[in-house]
């Protein structure tokens, strides 16, 4: 970790990792989508609509993962003043928000044929919507504060306050008896989902995770370069002012 604290080292490493990650992501998505569409059997009750799960579930996992990443990076910003932590948090917010949005949209498309409605106000759906709003709040706060240092610390505080929502989302389906089904993959006593559907789901989850990491690396790199451009512009303006004076 300490060697990664140097933004130049990080840019170098990320630049070398991105092509490999891209290739791996494409391969995994190819395999995952093939398994999901042609190999996994249709559900005995839901028919082919069950295939929405292979997009919906990984997107929802990554939505939570994104927020946990931001919360962990926020600790790094506030406690250790790690120079890349606030870049990591800022870069993860729009990606996490997008995955949350995908989970909400695919969930509601799945809800229409299965539950008969696009939206119900059950605990899982409501808490995911709150997660989406938290992401939007974080992004808005970053955009409202011009000075990157203050923006990073303010957003870190807000992210940690909002982190209370994460366990509520995870356990909402167990605490309240809701329309959304309870956990069937990551649970005590092993998954209750059939192996023929579990395998494509795992591949798709891996593909989504790699996609998240890939997008995150690209976004972090862009953010570091953006800050450098900003710093260079500031010095140019200062020098121009000195010449004038």
């Amino acid at each position: 970790m300490p060697s990664l604290a140097n933004p130049t080292r990080f840019l170098d490493l990320a630049g070398r990792a991105i092509p490999w990650l891209t290739a791996l992501t494409v391969v995994l998505f190819g395999a995952g989508l093939y398994l999901a569409f042609f190999v996994a059997p249709p559900d005995y009750q839901q028919g082919d609509t069950v295939r929405i799960m292979f997009v919906h579930v990984p997107a929802a996992w990554l939505a939570l993962f994104g927020y946990m990443l931001i919360a962990a990076a926020s600790l790094g910003t506030l406690i250790w003043r790690h120079p890349l932590a606030d870049v990591a948090a800022k870069a993860a917010a729009p990606i996490g928000a997008t995955f949350t949005f995908i989970a909400l949209v695919t969930g509601s498309l799945w809800g229409k044929p299965m539950w008969g409605t696009y939206w119900v106000w059950d605990a899982r759906l409501t808490s995911m919507l709150v997660l989406f709003l938290l992401y939007l709040g974080l992004i808005a706060l970053w955009q409202a504060i011009e000075e990157p240092g203050r923006a990073g610390r303010a957003a870190a505080i807000l992210a940690l306050v909002g982190a209370i929502n994460i366990p509520i989302i995870k356990f909402s389906v167990d605490w309240w008896n809701t329309l959304h089904q309870p956990a069937s993959v990551v649970r005590l006593g092993g998954p209750t989902i059939d192996p023929s559907m579990l395998a494509p789901l795992v591949v798709m989850a891996l593909a989504f995770t790699l996609l998240f990491v890939l997008l995150h690396l690209i976004a972090m790199r862009a953010e570091i370069l953006r800050r450098r451009v900003r710093a260079m512009q500031l010095t140019q303006v200062e020098q121009a002012a000195l010449v004038e004076a």
Binding site: V130, L133, G137, A140, G162
Partner: peptide
Amino acid sequence: LLALLVLPL
């Protein structure tokens, strides 16, 4: 901004 940040909480 205050409303957007706080209302979800």
